[in-house]
Design a protein around this nucleic acid. Sequence first.
DNA 1: TTGACACGACACCATGTGGTGTCATAAAAT
DNA 2: ATTTTATGACACCACATGGTGTCGTGTCAA
Lengths: 109, 109
Amino acid sequence: MSENNQLRDVFDAIADPTRRRLIRLLAEAEEIPLHELTVQFEMGRTAVSKHLTILKEAGLVLDRKVGRETRFRLNASPLREIQDWVAFYNRFWSTNMLRLNQLLEEEEE
Amino acid sequence: MSENNQLRDVFDAIADPTRRRLIRLLAEAEEIPLHELTVQFEMGRTAVSKHLTILKEAGLVLDRKVGRETRFRLNASPLREIQDWVAFYNRFWSTNMLRLNQLLEEEEE
DNA sequence: TTGACACGACACCATGTGGTGTCATAAAAT
DNA sequence: ATTTTATGACACCACATGGTGTCGTGTCAA
């Protein structure tokens, strides 16, 4: 039943651009081993591995060993928390709100 | 016309729980001065002020001086970037994907 | 005019973060 | 059997982050 062992805040996990690129890469493929992911970046294998660990801690990534390689795949469901959070503020950037902010700014001058 | 001077990554700005609480507080009121925001937290005024500075750098907050106080208000529109980003991954946590992940996990055992 | 209040600007500090390099080991290829 | 590959586990380092306290100044109230 897909327990969410969230050792790490999802907001924190997606804050880093490298980790967002990892998520994107994993979204475009079924499974990718660490060494294939590493060549996509300009940093060492250890650094990429650390980022993947953080994504794992947030539940965004699953891994399994196949032979001598470790293959990673995306588990996007924790992102629902982000979507729910941002959806709440949806109404605050409607056209009406933009007009209101403009009026308040004019008022200041 | 509301230039987005984004000195700071919005993903980074919302990564901190204190800053998300600030956003929530500002969403529930028109304008709130720093000292009123400060009493809501268990940290000093300087710390809250720093968080607000980061939110300002991300364009999520506007401020203006009124007398001796500095009043802050929310500008939610940069959150659209978050919504657009997360919307892309929407299809990855559909029911079908959950079933697929379950099947892959069973396969591993 | 005196005092309290709200704030910005610092200096400061412990800890976290994002990177590096190295070493040992298991698996695959030769 | 030997060598190459892929990885995990470390130790290490520079710098960012999230907090503190203090000082000076403008503003409001008594």
